[in-house]
């Protein structure tokens, strides 16, 4: 992962599109399967992860000169874990319903490779501001995929967007049915697969054509 001479803007947008953590690095798939049945949970999860990645990158970057290399990983994990626990507590306090739906997956942000990956690959070697932007960019990239998957799954799976029914009743009466597969985890697999396919077939977006 070269930090090279990227501008701050590039640092930020790289994570969102070109080197999207889900579509390009295929990280964070587990939670992308679990929380994308509804847009609401996907958005909250995306925000939570973006906050954690941004904050952890910032903190790690600030500490980067002090962290002893021997206990590097454990320090990173401690920082991330603490952030995740705080976020989880906040969700339980203020967004209880969503927290219930997200269940363990907020806690599992700790194991999300994106967070540790960015801390290791970027924050340890870069100043705070680019690190923060990189963290936020990657978090947003993850959120982007999550929301995209959730839009498809919620629309096809239960005919709703953000919990609001959008499929007209007339359709349902005419024989339209919701696609149950989309509410199951394999549905997300297919959607993510298709998204990666789509992204790679867009001109200039495929890492294979680099």
């Amino acid at each position: 992962m070269s930090n090279g001479n990227l501008t701050l803007k590039e640092t930020f947008f790289r994570g969102i599109w070109k080197e999207n953590p889900v579509a390009y690095q295929v990280l964070g798939i587990c939670s992308a399967l679990a929380v994308t049945v509804q847009m609401k949970t996907a958005i909250v999860m995306g925000i939570a992860l973006t906050l954690v990645t941004g904050a952890s990158n910032l903190i790690i970057s600030l500490l980067r000169k002090q962290i002893p290399p021997t206990i590097r990983i454990i320090v990173e994990l401690t920082v991330i874990a603490s952030l995740v626990i705080v976020i989880d507590q906040v969700l339980q306090a203020f967004l209880y319903d969503i927290s219930k739906q997200l269940s363990v997956f907020v806690g599992l942000i700790i194991t999300n490779c994106i967070v540790l990956g960015r801390a290791e690959a970027f924050a340890l070697a870069n100043p705070p501001l680019p690190s923060l932007l990189d963290g936020l960019g990657n978090g947003l990239g993850y959120s982007l995929v999550l929301v995209a998957v959730a839009v498809v799954r919620e629309l096809l799976g239960s005919g709703k967007l953000m919990g609001i029914a959008v499929v007209p009743q007339v359709w349902l009466e005419a024989g339209y049915a919701h696609m149950g597969l989309m509410t199951l985890a394999p549905g997300a697999f297919f959607i993510i697969g298709l998204l990666v396919w789509l992204k790679n077939s867009l001109p200039g977006a495929s890492h294979e054509q680099k």
Binding site: S82, I85, V86, Q89, V90, Q92, A93, F94, Y96
Partner: peptide
């Protein structure tokens, strides 16, 4: 963590 946990606990229980 302790701060967050204790500070938010009443809200969570209420939920």
């Amino acid at each position: 963590i302790t701060g967050a946990s204790t500070g938010l606990s009443p809200l969570q229980q209420a939920n």
